[in-house]
């Protein structure tokens, strides 16, 4: 049995034929579309390495069946930088050294983008920590990650303020 779904991935419309209904969004991205920036750390929704945005909300791509996402807009780490220009969160991660090995990083960054979009944590470090707690980092780069998210949040808020 094969299924076809249409997804918009990083702004590109993709008609995908799934030869197997068990394919997760994560494995669709990594193994079929070769968008390997999104990482698999557990395949169980326990680490956050696979975080992507679906219709503007962050989800664990390993827990979503691709077949259930017909019509969805998916944003992955590959879609953040536009024309080689890094998004605010990305440059903040570099400046604040928000990673070591970099394996959790795409998930941390997408989660941070989602968190800032949600707008609930604001500039409260404790709430940012709480809001980022679904993204594990084994290297222990937490301090830099939280600094980066807070800084990016501030810069994004500043830009919105200017625009308003």
């Amino acid at each position: 049995m094969s299924l076809s779904v249409t997804l918009t991935i990083n702004g590109d419309r993709k008609d995908v034929v799934l030869e197997d209904p068990r394919v997760t969004l994560l494995d669709l991205l990594r193994e079929r579309l070769h968008l390997t920036g999104t990482k698999k750390g557990c395949d169980r929704g326990q680490c956050g390495a696979c975080t992507v945005l679906v219709d503007g909300r962050r989800i664990n791509a390993c827990l979503a069946l691709a077949a259930s996402l017909d019509g969805a807009e998916v944003m992955t780490i590959e879609g953040l930088a536009v024309g080689g220009r890094l998004a605010t969160v990305q440059s903040a991660f570099i400046e604040h050294d928000g990673f070591q090995c970099g394996f959790c990083t795409p998930g941390q960054i997408m989660s941070a983008v989602g968190l800032i979009l949600e707008g609930d944590a604001g500039d409260d470090p404790d709430r940012v920590r709480e809001g980022m707690s679904g993204n594990l980092c084994r290297c222990g780069a937490h301090a830099g990650i939280i600094e980066a998210v807070l800084d990016a949040q501030k810069r994004v808020a500043g830009e919105e303020g200017k625009a308003a």
């Binding site: 968008l35 390997t36 920036g37 999104t38 992955t76 780490i77 590959e78 953040l80 930088a81 890094l86 990305q90 440059s91 991660f93 570099i94 050294d97 990673f99 970099g102 990083t105 795409p106 960054i109």
Partner: peptide, 10 residues
């Protein structure tokens, strides 16, 4: 980090 760009873009 010199590999920062690669790591934050996936």
């Amino acid at each position: 980090r010199r590999d920062g760009f690669l790591k934050v873009t996936g």
